[in-house]
Structures are given as C-alpha cells and as structure tokens.
C-alpha cells in the first residue's frame, strides 16, 4: 500500500478520519480523567505535611505537562509545515496554540492555588513558575501573530518561524531564569520539585495525565476540524462574491 506523508495531510481525509476517531478519544479522555480523579481523591493518601492541598497537584502537574506537550506539537507541525508544505500541518500548529496556552494558564493558576497554603502567597517568582509564565507569553505572541495576518498562508509561514525560534530559545530562557533566580535566592521557598513524589501518588497522577492528554488530542481535533471548515467557508464566500 502506497503510504506517503501526504496520506493524512488531505483535509477531506482528515475530516473523515477524525470523525471516526473522535468518539474513542473522548471515551479515553473521560475514562482517564474519571478514574484518575477517583484515585486521586479517594485512594491517594493526603500528604503528611501539606494535607489535602497536595491533591491540587493532580491538576497542576498534568497541566504543566500539556503546556510543554502543546508547544511540542506546535513546533513539530511548524517544521513539517515549513519543509513539506503540508496543508494540515499549519492547521495543527494554529489549533494547538490556544489549547497549550490554556493549559499553561491552568498550570499557573493551579500552582498559585497550591502555593497559597504552602507559601502564604498566590504567586512566587521562582524559576519554574517564571519559566512557565514566559512560555505563556510565547504562546500568546504566537496567537497574536496569527490573528494579525489576514492571509492564512502567509500567517502560517511566519508563525512557523516564530514557533521554531521559540523552541530554540526556550532552553536559553529557562537557563537565564534559573540563573536569575539563584542570583536572588528567595527566602526559603519550599520547592515543588524538592521531595520525591511518593509512589502512592504517582499512579493516580499518571492516569490523570493520560486522561488530560487524550482530552488535549480531542480538543485539538475539534479545533482543527473547525479551522478547516472556517477556511472552506472563506473560500465559499469568495466564490460567492466572485459569482
């Protein structure tokens, strides 16, 4: 069977394929989040230091993971879009950005709510939080770029360059933020990554993260379908105007 990288790049084929796959993705997402939440609320023990507030971790950590995962999808799609000129790759990159941004925001909010009982304040400028904030800004910048350029083909190429430049720069930003943080050494902050997570928390966390990831993929597919339809509408409008 002749399979090429363009097999699933055809928007029509993607519409058919995603229509079939989506119910399963939703089912997996629902199961993962449902079971995971049950485990994390009723099976996982409260932390001996933090008590029940440790359960915020079950939202915070998967969100933080998806903030990175989303950017990964954006970068890979952008590279594919630039090199292979896929019709679908730039749709995927554009669609992934707002979802990634929302999870990044969620990670920050959950982190803040977790931080309040732990540090006595919603926001601390520690290295990890700050890097996540910078990631959020890169997401927002990427989305703003898409929003400001009207021609989707041009927007796709420019945005792809930004996503890739961002990927190259993220480690540098991360390093500089770490360096900045050690320079100022905030007063005895309890580190999230300090104590190793007990294995009784690890399993529920893994299941929730899996559910979140399927949820991400489901939303991504819905957004891609919407974007494809949006472009179709635009084309039809132009045809109607020209008729």
């Amino acid at each position: 069977m002749a399979w090429s990288i363009h097999t699933y790049a055809n928007p029509t084929r993607f519409m058919n394929f995603s229509a079939i796959v989506l119910p399963y993705v939703w089912a997996l997402a629902g199961a993962g989040i449902g079971i995971g939440l049950y485990l994390s609320f009723f099976v996982a023990p409260p932390d001996y230091q933090q008590g029940d507030s440790v359960r915020i971790m079950f939202v915070h950590v998967p969100s933080a993971w998806l903030s990175q995962f989303g950017y990964g999808i954006m970068v890979v799609s952008s590279i594919v879009a630039l090199i292979f000129r896929h019709p679908l790759a730039d749709v995927a990159a554009k669609s992934a950005a707002p979802i990634g941004a929302v999870f990044t925001f969620l990670a920050l909010v959950a982190g803040g709510l977790w931080g309040k009982p732990m540090w006595g304040t919603y926001w601390v400028w520690d290295a990890r939080t700050t890097s996540t904030l910078v990631l959020l800004f890169i997401y927002l910048g990427y989305m703003a770029l898409w929003a400001m350029i009207e021609d989707p083909n041009r927007a796709a190429r420019v945005a792809a360059v930004l996503a890739i430049v961002g990927a190259v720069n993220l480690p540098i930003i991360r390093f500089s933020v770490d360096w900045w943080n050690t320079l100022h050494q905030p007063a005895s902050v309890f580190r999230l990554d300090g104590p190793t997570i007990h294995s009784s928390l690890l399993w529920p966390l893994f299941v929730v993260a899996l559910g979140f990831t399927f949820f991400f993929i489901g939303v991504l597919m819905v957004r891609m379908r919407a974007e494809i339809l949006r472009r179709k509408v635009r084309t039809l409008q132009m045809q109607q105007a020209a008729a």
């Binding site: 635009r234 132009m238 105007a241």
Partner: peptide
C-alpha cells in the same frame, strides 16, 4: 445578495 459576506472577500470593483 452579498450583504451577509465580510467586505474583505469582495473584489476591488465590488
């Protein structure tokens, strides 16, 4: 008949 379309899709003449 074009009233509902965004003006951006119109040609220069339109």
């Amino acid at each position: 008949h074009l009233g509902h379309l965004p003006a951006g899709v119109l040609s220069a003449g339109q």
